[in-house]
Design a protein around this nucleic acid. Structure first.
Lengths: 145, 145
DNA sequence: TTACCTGTACCCATTATAGTTACAGGTAAC
DNA sequence: GTTACCTGTAACTATAATGGGTACAGGTAA
C-alpha cells in the first residue's frame, strides 16, 4: 500500500510553476517535467484549483500559484489532491461479530488510536511549506551546477 | 487509499486469543469473531508467527500469544502484517525529467519529508501496547454489559 | 484409521491508480 | 470570424492490491 503519487506530483507542479514565474506553465510544460501525460496534469490542476492553491483559466495557457509559497503547507496540498480521507488512513474491518466481546468493541477501541497516528503524520506535513521545498531545490542546484 | 485492514484484524486476533486464554483459538473461532474466512486468518497468523508474536503449530488447534501483551506494541503488529513498507507510505513518481531544475531534485527533496511524516505516525503506534487495547475492551464490557 | 487442524496454492470480484485518447468549449491573435 | 491553441472532462485501458473463497497436502491426536 502506498499513498498515491498525486501528492508528490502536486508538490512538484506547484514548485515548478513558482520557479517558472517568467515562463508559461501550460499543462504540457508541466507534464514534460513530471514525465506524464498533460491530461493527468490537468486533472490534478482541477483539484489544486478547487482548493484555491492555483489559478488556471480555460483557454488561457499557464497556471499561477494563488498564494505565497510560505502560506502553503504540504498538508494543504495533501488535502487538495485527496489522497487520504479524514480518519481513513487506516481501515478497519466492518462486520466483526457483535456476539463476541472483542468483536463488538474492537472498532471503537481502535479508531481513536488510528486517528491519532494519522493526525501525527499530518501534523508533520503541516509544518513544511512549499517555500521550504523550493528553497531546498534552489540550494541543491547551486551546489550541483 | 487506505492501509489494509489486515492491521486491524491482526490487533483483533491477538486481543481475542488473549481474552480466550481458557478456550481454544482455532482459525475458525477467530474467523467467526472477525467475520471472515478461516483461510484469511491462517494467512495472517503466518505473518504474526513469522514476527514471533504468536505460537501456532500445524495439526494442533489453537494459537497462543508468544509474549506478554504489554511487550507488544501496535507498531509490532503493523510491521508484522506488512501493510506498509519502510519509507514507502508515500509514493513518489519515478521518472521526472532530469533536464528540469525541479525534475532532477524533487525526489531527493521530498523523500526525507515523507519519511519524517511516516515515522511520526509509526511512533504513535509504538506507544500503544496490546495490553492497552485489551484493557480498553474490558472496560467497555463492564460498562455496557 | 479417522477426524480435525494448519499451511498454502490457486482463483475470483472489486477497487484504485496511472495513463491514454478524444473532444467540447474558452480565448486570443490574425 | 476564422484559426490555433489552450483547459476541462469523459471514456477507456492496463496493472496491481485487497479481501474473499475453494481445495488440498501434510501434521497431530484420539
Amino acid at each position: 500500500m502506498s499513498i498515491s503519487s498525486r501528492f508528490a506530483v502536486g508538490i512538484h507542479i506547484l514548485a515548478l510553476i513558482d520557479l517558472n514565474k517568467e515562463g508559461t506553465s501550460s499543462s504540457e510544460f508541466l507534464a514534460s517535467s513530471v514525465n506524464t501525460n498533460p491530461a493527468v496534469i490537468r486533472k490534478l490542476m482541477g483539484m489544486l484549483k478547487k482548493a484555491g492553491l492555483v489559478e488556471v483559466h480555460p483557454g488561457i495557457a499557464g497556471a499561477k500559484v494563488a498564494k505565497q509559497l510560505s502560506e502553503i503547507t504540504l498538508l494543504d496540498v495533501y488535502k487538495a489532491v485527496n489522497v487520504v480521507q479524514d480518519k481513513e488512513l487506516f481501515s478497519v474491518h466492518d462486520n466483526p461479530n457483535p456476539e463476541c466481546h472483542v468483536g463488538r468493541n474492537i472498532q471503537n477501541t481502535i479508531e481513536p488510536l488510528f486517528t491519532a497516528a494519522q493526525l501525527a503524520m499530518e501534523k508533520v506535513l503541516g509544518n513544511v511549506t512549499l517555500e521550504d521545498v523550493v528553497k531546498d531545490i534552489a540550494n541543491k542546484e547551486k551546489i550541483k551546477c
